[in-house]
Design a protein around this nucleic acid. Structure first.
Lengths: 334, 334
DNA sequence: CGCACCGAGTTCATCGTTTTCATCTGAGGG
DNA sequence: CCCTCAGATGAAAACGATGAACTCGGTGCG
């Protein structure tokens, strides 16, 4: 691969002159600029980004930590939002998955840092607030997604999860439902899980419905888990006319289970999901759910990260998002 | 961030010695090694990967070009396979999306190359065989996924797409279906599309069924497109007892459309998808489909890439994959 | 006339590593 | 007792770029 030296030799100028035309950092006589340009083209020259990064202390990379890229479309959608912004800022994204595991999340962040990312966007689930706060105090700008880290509130872009399940329950109670179950994740260390659970309880309370822990079942937060949880719920023989899913995947799995038991959805049991992932529009019945504007959240997080590393003010960046109901066909009035 | 110099000073040795203990590249007296190790820990030292890459001409990165990370779980699954292998080789992955666009694919590859990736794994759809072949002749090892580039067959990891739709049609004909439609993508430049179409026609031919182009409809290859295409198929009033979807998403969209028209699936119309993406187990009816072992393909591609950049022989690497039917509930005998 | 200034170049130090080569030490053989 | 040799260590030259400092004519102004 050709270097800047080769170009300078071919164009009969010094390497600094070449550097100048590359970076447009100072004026260069038109004929020399032409010479450099054509030499660059002839040698198919592209600046070595490592050399650039080494001396300029800028890698032009933004590191992103996600849970997983495959557990569903959730993180993929977030990446879409992030990449749109990062791309616009002429930078690159490096993604690493933490797989919801403390050790691996830490490792991934280390790797991102070692690669001298200019900024980090972290969707950490397993690391403690303290550890994250310490990171935030480090030299590299950090943005947290989907989590409020105490002491770094101005760097957190998040959705009000409590409000989400609260909406879901309100929607159901407004339709006359009183026996509302909750199919949730078995990983209750996860802040989201707690908040969604609280929203659920608050919704019941608002409607004057007594909370019954028999109506709460938990399992792995995917389709299979939803299926398993619904099975358990049925076995408990506690009546319910509706359930709220921790996420759409669990809701879909739960519906799948009910149907196998010949329980009609939504005629017998109404269902509300959470997230509004793309495919749930295509399951039967079309799922009523709470929209998690993850793409927009990714965009704002990326925007914030870009601003931070440019030391620009973070004006107009939305930190808190509020969920919205998406009404489809899986809820019927009681 | 601490540098190797800081470490050497603290440990009272030369930087070469530090480098030696980092890389285990030569023997170092035990007490010095200890001193270095503890100094490294104390300073929280991590080698600057740019400096390393600059001098050693190795970035330890493998660049991946995908279509999109969000159009469905397809590429995410591929990444899962790739990352597993790359991680095992103690390297990193850099992903870029080409968004199925010629210009953007080229740009993404350029970016990957400029970042001095040690090897490239490309899922290119828009670039020409010639262009890819030229890349393959360049200094950076390249592996192509899901495409056979003439002249670089030993670097292509791919699925026999023709065989896939062939299987699908065979499955339907074996169940007595004769009027079989095909809901396909509108982007017929795409090699996969052509091969799947050929498989469909071949399947009909084998069963002695005359091909009727009225039974082929095309649209954007996602759920919405499937819906649109099915709508058109119905409008054409050409009878069909089954259809094969270009992919699962289109099949799901198509089913969704049929149901809205009160056409029962699979009682009235049987459906076979393609890909076996995770969620289609949860749509009603559970979709019978052709499995696209994309995760395994990703693994093999990554393995090949790693071998190539180590100049190791590519023994035992599977290049061609054969699709398999996954029988679920969306096909009924005629 | 002399001086400051200006634009357009060049030279050179620098970034944080790896790696080659030279140096030094001490042990063992003749 | 000296020479050789191996093993441990350090000094210094890359790697490819950037950017500060400097050079060199040529202007404009007091």
């Amino acid at each position: 691969m050709a270097t800047i030296k080769d170009v300078s030799r071919l164009a009969n100028v010094s390497i600094s002159t070449v550097s100048r035309v590359i970076n447009n950092t100072a004026q260069v006589a038109p004929e020399k600029r032409e010479a450099v340009l054509s030499a660059m083209k002839e040698l198919n020259f592209r600046p070595n980004s490592f050399a650039q990064a080494l001396v300029s202390k800028r890698s032009n990379c933004i590191g992103v930590l996600v849970g997983d890229l495959c557990g569903g479309p959730f993180f993929a959608q977030m990446m879409l939002g992030i990449e749109r912004i990062v791309d616009k800022a002429n930078k690159f994204t490096i993604v690493m998955s933490g797989n919801h595991d403390e050790y691996r999340e830490r490792h991934a962040i280390e790797a991102l840092l070692q690669r001298q990312c200019d900024a980090l966007i972290l969707h950490s689930k397993a690391l403690s607030d303290e550890e994250l706060l310490e990171l935030a105090h480090g030299p590299t700008p950090v943005v947290f997604v989907n989590r409020q880290v105490p002491g770094a509130e101005d760097r957190c872009v998040w959705l009000d999860n409590r409000e989400g399940t609260l909406c879901a329950v309100r929607h159901l109670t407004s339709q006359g439902h009183k026996e509302i179950a909750f199919i949730t994740t078995d990983d209750m260390d996860f802040t989201d899980a707690n908040l969604r659970f609280e929203g659920y309880k608050q919704g019941l309370e608002e409607a004057g419905i007594e909370f019954n822990e028999q109506r709460v079942v938990s399992a792995f937060p995917d389709e299979v888990g939803g299926h398993v949880a619904a099975e358990e719920l049925l076995q408990r023989k506690v009546p319910f006319t509706a359930f709220v899913g921790f996420n759409d995947a669990m809701a879909a799995g739960g519906i799948s289970c009910l149907m196998e038991h010949d329980i009609a959805v939504p005629q017998t049991v109404s269902v509300v999901g959470f997230d509004d992932i793309p495919y749930i529009r295509f399951i039967r019945p079309k799922l009523t759910t709470v929209k998690y504007p993850i793409e927009a959240i990714g965009e704002q997080a990326a925007e914030l990260a870009v601003r931070m590393l440019d030391n620009k003010p973070a004006d107009g960046i939305r930190l808190k998002f509020v969920p919205e109901m998406v009404i489809r066909d899986s809820v019927l009035p009681r």
